[in-house]
């Protein structure tokens, strides 16, 4: 058995190397291209030669995939003009030379505030490009297990993906707890209460709600195996018609009505008889969820 390598602690490049078959990765517009952010430079802020995102193609379990991996250690994985353009370009390339899937390692707080307008437009352009890839029959799978999670516009992008693989340590949402606490007060959301933060945004509650489609250990190999299983399932993008969206609408209406006053994931777990969910090992948690479904 191989030694576990934490996905959360790995850099974007290590994640790509750990996910793909050895020696198969080709990077597009890598650090050698020196595509840095002029907007960060204008503010006197540090720049990165890859602007905080790695894009390229390689093989996973022998199948060709396009990979996008955000670097959470650089400005919280936030999306600026260059960073966003690389992601959009990767989706456009996927449309031109269709891979089996796009694997999207999201690790980002959303828009990079130093270049906020450009970042907001970039995320909108990523959404459009991702829709185009999905419409062309290419599934897009999000991996969320980094320290920055998937928030802001990238939280929306994650939920546009056809599968979302998370670890318990991963977090997924729209507004981060710190933002809510700053604007609405500590009574609304105590961002320092880490257990509460995970019960609201973490991988287990997102899996319980069906938003994460897979929950895996914080281990690069576990993430790779989850993607390999998706590849071998041969599934394409989630179908996208008036009927499927009307059904999705009914599902979301139902959840909003059922959980109209819930502010803590523990309430949902108690209702399901999973009151010790927070303490369970990932495998046990997955087994219990499976038994309930």
């Amino acid at each position: 058995m191989t030694r576990p390598r934490s996905y959360r602690e790995a850099t974007a490049r290590r994640r790509v190397a750990g996910l793909l078959d050895a020696g198969t990765f080709t990077e597009w517009v890598g650090p050698g291209a020196r595509a840095t952010s002029p907007h960060l430079a204008a503010l006197g802020a540090p720049v990165s030669f890859d602007d905080g995102v790695v894009v390229g193609e390689g093989r996973l379990a022998g199948e060709r995939v396009v990979v996008i991996a955000q670097e959470g250690l650089f400005n919280g994985g936030a999306v600026g003009e260059v960073h966003g353009a690389k992601i959009r370009g990767a989706f456009e390339r996927a449309c031109a030379e269709p891979p089996r899937a796009v694997v999207f390692c999201i690790d980002s707080g959303g828009v990079r505030l130093h270049e906020a307008n450009a970042g907001l437009l970039a995320i909108s352009e990523i959404m459009r490009a991702q829709f185009a890839a999905q419409s062309a029959g290419i599934p897009v799978w999000a991996l969320v297990g980094g320290a920055c999670g998937a928030f802001g516009g990238m939280g929306i992008v994650a939920r546009l993906c056809d599968a979302v693989v998370m670890s318990e340590e991963g977090r997924l949402g729209l507004s981060g707890p710190e933002v809510i606490e700053t604007v609405k007060g500590v009574e609304e959301f105590d961002a320092r209460d880490r257990a509460l933060v995970w019960r609201v945004t973490g991988g287990k509650i997102r899996r319980t709600l069906g938003e994460a489609t897979h929950l895996v250990e914080d281990d690069l190999t576990a993430f790779r195996e989850a993607v390999a299983a998706l590849l071998s399932s041969r599934q394409g993008p989630v179908p996208f018609t008036l009927e499927t969206l009307q059904a999705a609408q009914a599902g979301l209406e139902g959840r909003a009505a059922r959980d109209a006053a819930v502010r803590d994931g523990q309430v949902l777990w108690d209702r399901l008889g999973l009151d010790d969910a927070a303490l369970m090992e990932t495998a046990q948690f997955n087994r219990r969820l499976q038994e309930l479904s």
Partner: peptide, 11 residues
């Protein structure tokens, strides 16, 4: 901006 909305998965 609310904890309830985040728990529902506003994104």
């Amino acid at each position: 901006l609310s904890r309830h909305e985040e728990l529902l998965g506003l994104n």
